[in-house]
Amino acid sequence: MLADRQKVLVISLLIISFLLYSFSIYLNPPEKKEPVTLLSTKGKLVWQQYNCVACHQVYGLGGYLGPDLTNVYSHKGAAYIKVFLANGTATMPNFHLSDEDIAALTAYLQQIDASGSADPRSYTIQPDGTIQQ
């Protein structure tokens, strides 16, 4: 059996390290050179308002009914994106978005695209099991 004192010691150490780790991330967050604009920040809120993430992924995270959109901006282009947003598809609803919302969403997808690549083919696997992007 462990004594109460030992338990308190272990848990205190764990909690202190957890808080240090958490705050180091809040204060020194990973930021990429993304073109953050007024329009793209608005686009993020439009993205959330229509719950696009229920069907789409960004960096592989989200719902799985539709494709990952991380790099759709550089792969397919703004005009292509706008066609989808304006019309929907058999599965994707037409949200009857305003021109402004469409522009904002497109700017947001451009921002995501500039943050990195989500294409697993572009990663190299290291012998120790880690990956390099």
Binding site: P29, E31, K32, E34, T41, K44, S115, G116
Partner: peptide, 12 residues
Amino acid sequence: YFRDHVVKDMTI
């Protein structure tokens, strides 16, 4: 502050 950058936002 927390949501503006995609990578920061998704990390947290």
